[in-house]
């Protein structure tokens, strides 16, 4: 008769664990991404880079499975009916950041771009900024589920890091296009810079949405 079973609480617990694991995937992906690009910039596409690249692919695959499981359980067990649509949208957009990390890593793997020595440090910096933005986005998102009071702090950090990443990528593009390299080479480098910076951009978009949902959730 009553649709409040003990199984609902165990399901809630399982779903809570899934949401936590889903967030862990972004942290894992971000760490592996930073390591992979660092290795690539130093030694090119070697076995170590390939190991990290495969790891990111696996993380992305697991994250997709977790996302589907979270979505199915939210609907299947009729949980948080008033916030379900918002949470589903957040989960989808969160997953897009993991997908982007995987996509950029694969670009390095497949295209093996020649990164000129003078840009390697800037590339490293841009990768760190994007990974940092993604990690802070992850913290903000975790807070949304547990402690609304800290969402704003992490969100502010994401905005600030994204701004830095914008400045860094623009500076890199200006330098590249001011050089006397081949246009094809310039365009390929631009594609990589845009791809890496896109991670921070997507984190920022996620935060924009998260802040609106936070206001809605606040009592």
């Amino acid at each position: 008769m009553f649709h409040i079973h003990l199984s609902l609480f165990s399901k809630t617990k399982a779903l809570e664990a899934d949401i936590d694991k889903f967030h862990d995937k972004l942290i894992d992906a971000s760490i592996s991404f930073t390591k992979a690009v660092k290795i690539y910039l130093k030694e090119g596409r070697n076995a170590d880079f390939e190991k990290h690249s495969k790891q990111i692919k696996l993380i992305e695959h697991n994250a997709d499975e977790l996302r589907r499981s979270i979505e199915n359980n939210l609907y299947g067990y009729n949980l948080i009916p008033d916030l379900r649509a918002d949470v589903l949208e957040l989960v989808e957009n969160f997953d897009k950041v993991i997908n982007k990390i995987d996509e950029v890593t694969y670009m390095f793997y497949a295209e093996c771009p020649q990164i000129p020595d003078e840009y390697r440090e800037s590339f490293n910096e841009l990768v760190h900024l994007s990974a940092d933005a993604a990690e802070n986005m992850c913290k903000a998102s975790r807070s949304f589920f547990r402690d609304l009071s800290t969402v704003r702090d992490y969100s502010q950090k994401v905005y600030s890091i994204e701004h830095e990443s914008d400045l860094c990528s623009r500076k890199m593009l200006e330098n590249i296009f001011a050089s006397d390299r081949q246009l094809a080479e310039k365009l390929q480098l631009r594609q990589f810079i845009d791809g890496i910076a896109e991670i921070a951009d997507q984190a920022e978009d996620f935060i924009d949405q998260l802040l609106i949902f936070t206001i809605k959730r606040d009592i």
Binding site: F2, T12, E16, I80, F144, F145, R146
Partner: peptide, 19 residues
């Protein structure tokens, strides 16, 4: 503000409280 509760647990408690 003082009780940091997961959104899902809050949902379960809200259901019981509503009933």
């Amino acid at each position: 503000t003082h009780w940091k509760l997961h959104i899902l647990r809050k949902d379960s408690l809200t259901r019981i409280a509503l009933i």
